[in-house]
Design a binder for these strands. Sequence first.
DNA 1: AAATCGGGCAACCGCTCAGCG
DNA 2: GCGCTGAGCGGTTGCCCGATT
Length: 271
Amino acid sequence: MVASAGSGKSRGSGRDSDEGSDGREQGVKKGPWTAAEDAVLVEYVRNHGEGNWNAVQRNCGLKRCGKSCRLRWANHLRPNLKKGGFSPEEERLIIELHAKIGNKWARMASQLPGRTDNEIKNYWNTRVKRLQRANLPMYPNDINPQQQQTHPNTSTPPPPSLSSSSKFSPPLPLFRPFNFLPNPNPQFKPLHHNQINTNFGLPLTSPVLSFSSSLMPLTSSAFPNQFKSSDFDMNPLGVLVPRVKTELPSIQSPGDSVTPASSGLFVGVIW
DNA sequence: AAATCGGGCAACCGCTCAGCG
DNA sequence: GCGCTGAGCGGTTGCCCGATT
């Protein structure tokens, strides 16, 4: 299965000059994995189990460093990996976990069976980029990041470290169940994929809104000829929502003020 | 049709930690 | 206690490709 080729996106040879081009580590190949290399690695793991990754190179003649082997196995070859976009439930969990523990991708991955830290990290970073660009908060407003505000990789400092791994400190108080859904309101019509879907993991009994899965941006292409991107705002989940100039009085619970964070959660399009 | 932009993703790098002699 | 080595983690880079201009 698989192989970098398998991703359908074989990477060019740019920085991946085949043999540690800079000559640092002679004989160590970099760059995209080939199906043949994958096969060797899979065979190795089948026979020896995971771990001792440096032995792969020694024993199998694979011209990959141990780290590279470990990564390849963990992210692509190991069984039970889920492929494809995150489900609404997963997306919700990621946001919740990030609010709790910050950029602890591996720990998040451990809560998401079949998902890898790399995948989660990529997902989050993409989402963060979107939100930052739109100048929107990282979390729904009823989620209080545990101090350790998010810190999109570069700009903000990491959360107060929970210190290392088995160091998962006593569970932080859980958030209230997700209620960053707005009140159901018949005025909103769920978006279905293709029209977009994603209920963001809410009980499907909730008649309400669908959220953009994989936070698929509701780009203007979704409505050719009808809208342009300036017609939309991004909500806290990174989903584009129609820019509404009025206050949406009908959707607010009494006393609620419409903040980007709250109103943004209306991901339904006002039809 | 061509150029540009941005999203998505794979893979590498550097650092830290844990285990062991 | 110290140094070495392997493993794991988080951050970053760079390519591909589809969408947009």
